[in-house]
Simulated scan of single mutants.
Amino acid sequence: MNEFTPEDPADMDTDFSYLVDAEDTGKRLDAVLAGQMDTLSRNRIQALIRAGEVTVDGAKIVEPKYRVNEGELLALSVPEAEEAEPQGEDIPLTIVYEDEHLIVVDKPAGLVVHPGAGNWTGTLVNALIHHCGDSLSGIGGVKRPGIVHRIDKDTSGLLVVAKTDLAHQGLSAQFADHGRTGPLERAYSALVWGAPSSLKGTIDANLARSLHNRQKIAVVKTSGRQAITHWQVKERFGPEDQPSLASLMECRLETGRTHQIRVHMAHIGHPLIGDQDYGAGFKTKVNRLDDPLKTVISEFSRQALHAGLLAFEHPATGETLKFESPYPADFANLLSALQKF
């Protein structure tokens, strides 16, 4: 790194300085700084430039696309990360993996990921702020965990969260790519009503907010966002001479839309057991069952969905990390009851 160090560093109110060489002449200011610094994302650098934290030969430059010239001295000041607005809370977490860059947690059903309307406290973010403390170096200038993907409140399973701006940038790029060109994998176990006639398939159906209920998602034909789910039947339940009562399916996401698996499964006629939003029409089916299965399903208080596999490339080391989560007790109990049916 061609870093310029003045004779008296105390005379410079800066965290980083760089004397532009011939190779960088004519390039954008934000691009040059991003190329010299591997701890800040380009978006973060652009925000710092606009905030007046970058000078060129002592003059503030607030335009990221400014073209630099050979011999100019670039100086960047990075303000201390602000405290996160949500407060840390001592909420127990199951930590699967953690280092200075990121943390992987096994989220229990019932835990909301991010604070929002009606859930300003008691979330995974509150728990991570408390757990990580000063190891959060600042995402976008704020000491907060970097949420790059989410799973529903009542879905259990694996979630990776960035602790640094660099990790946030690298993980976000992988999730935006949906694993098409990298090692990102996301696989869910789902217990659904009935069973498809084939053993595997793909659902490619766009999703958008429902026009009838803005809290729900619906399949749409001509608008919305593309959503692709690959599914495979792992086990069918029920007497061999009758249509399957239910099945265990593995769903792999090629995209990651809100409620994607839940809506897609309902769309093909096999909603998740326990899904009150997209499978409520199957309640009558429960009433026709005999105990103990009837009781087990009736008492299952969430959608039967578990994020059991997560793989991605470590944004700092380049290593492929792969994690698997066992079924939580309620899911395992429901599966066992179905297997005995």
Rank of each mutant, 00 (worst) to 15 (best):
A167P: 04
L321V: 02
R44K: 12
N213Y: 10
V113I: 08
T55M: 10
T229L: 02
V220A: 08
E83P: 06
W193M: 05
N287A: 15
V125L: 15
L171Q: 02
A167S: 10
Q242T: 11
H101I: 04
R44Y: 13
G201Y: 09
L253F: 08
S336N: 13
G118Q: 08
Y66K: 06
E100H: 05
G179Q: 07
I45R: 01
L19E: 05
G122H: 07
L248K: 05
H101A: 14
G279Q: 01
M249K: 02
E7N: 15
E235T: 14
H101V: 01
L199I: 06
G35F: 02
V56I: 09
G170V: 07
A316L: 13
E89N: 06
F237M: 02
L310Y: 02
G138C: 12
V56S: 04
L158E: 01
V112N: 06
M12Y: 12
A332E: 09
S298W: 12
R252I: 07
A218E: 13
L207F: 05
W231T: 01
H270Y: 05
S247R: 01
G269L: 05
H267S: 08
L191C: 07
T39E: 08
A167H: 04
G274Q: 01
L248G: 02
L111A: 05
D134G: 13
G224P: 03
E313K: 11
P183T: 08
E250Y: 03
A227F: 06
V20W: 00
E85F: 11
S172G: 08
P108T: 00
H267R: 03
L111N: 03
Q215E: 15
I129L: 15
D241N: 13
P9N: 11
I61S: 03
L272W: 03
V112D: 03
N287R: 15
S189R: 11
N119G: 06
V263W: 02
F282W: 12
D38L: 07
I273A: 01
E72L: 06
K107Y: 00
E324G: 12
P9W: 09
Q232N: 10
K234G: 04
C132T: 08
E85M: 13
P183S: 10
L184A: 07
P196F: 09
Y66M: 13
T14D: 02
S77Q: 08
H178A: 13
L309N: 01
D165I: 10
K107W: 00
